[in-house]
């Protein structure tokens, strides 16, 4: 069911979404995406290359932002999706993991396109730089 994006206005804020990220999520995402980089499942290798520990795939965090966009828009067509991976999401080896929060403000609605300026945080720290989505209204 699509949301009626034609009623959205610039400046409008969308209800933030909170998603858990555990090691189990990373393993599942590795299998689904084909990204078996060991920095996403081995503390030993992650620390060897200078990381604080196992980190989430940047693409998993971006997949969660795309999930939020899909939920807000009722599955609108995404024309563009972009983000910088500015801070790693370190995922501890426990049952609760960490949370990623995706918030958004409608930047513009024009020419049948809605641009969302996103804010993606974990533990209060921004983890993505300038995350943005453009969807067809």
């Amino acid at each position: 069911m699509s949301a009626d994006l034609s009623t959205w206005e610039a400046g409008q804020e969308l209800e933030p979404r909170t998603y858990p990220v555990t090691r189990a999520h990373l393993v599942r995402y590795a299998g689904a995406s084909g990204d078996f980089n060991p920095i996403h499942w081995s503390d030993r290798i992650a620390t060897t290359v200078g990381l604080p520990g196992v980190i989430a795939h940047g693409m998993f965090t971006q997949a969660l932002t795309a999930r939020a966009v899909a939920e807000w828009t009722g599955g609108a067509e995404v024309v563009e999706l972009t983000a910088k991976f500015t801070n790693p999401v370190v995922v501890p080896d426990d049952d609760t993991g960490v949370e990623v929060v995706v918030a958004a403000t409608v930047r513009s609605v024009e020419d049948g396109l809605v641009t969302l300026a996103l804010t993606v945080t974990s533990g209060g720290t921004k983890v993505l730089g300038n995350p943005r989505a453009v969807v067809r209204a």
Partner: peptide, 14 residues
């Protein structure tokens, strides 16, 4: 080696 690669930025333009 893949383990030495960290993703810095990603864009999809459809």
């Amino acid at each position: 080696d893949l383990s030495r690669i960290v993703h810095g930025e990603q864009k999809f333009a459809y």
